[in-house]
């Protein structure tokens, strides 16, 4: 796996590896992906999504109580005025 490709994966994953780590990961991921590539032996086409083996009865449109505001933000690393806070974003 090329370094450029690893860097792209870092971007998608919002991770930043050190150059040393990057080399190690490239090796590991290469091995794993090579292993996973055996999957190409599969000749069938995926028949859509097969997880459901039971028909769903959907939820009725009824309102249930929400969490209290203070509980919603209780674990926030930064919060103010009942909101989660991050450094100001330029749009």
């Amino acid at each position: 796996m090329e370094i450029k490709e690893i860097q792209h994966l870092e971007e998608l994953s919002n991770l930043k590896l050190s150059s040393q780590q990057r080399e190690r990961f490239a090796q590991d991921l290469d091995n794993i992906i090579q292993f996973a590539s055996q999957i190409s032996k599969e000749t069938h086409q995926a028949q859509g999504f097969i997880q459901s083996i039971h028909l769903n009865e959907l939820r009725e449109d009824i309102v249930q109580p929400s969490l209290p505001q203070e509980k919603v933000v209780i674990n926030a690393p930064d919060q103010r005025k009942g909101c989660f806070a991050v450094p100001r974003i330029m749009e």
Partner: peptide, 16 residues
């Protein structure tokens, strides 16, 4: 099942 409503206090119609 949180309410679909507008103009509430922030983060008061929220659940996990």
């Amino acid at each position: 099942s949180c309410a679909n409503s507008f103009g509430q206090e922030p983060n008061t119609t929220c659940c996990p």
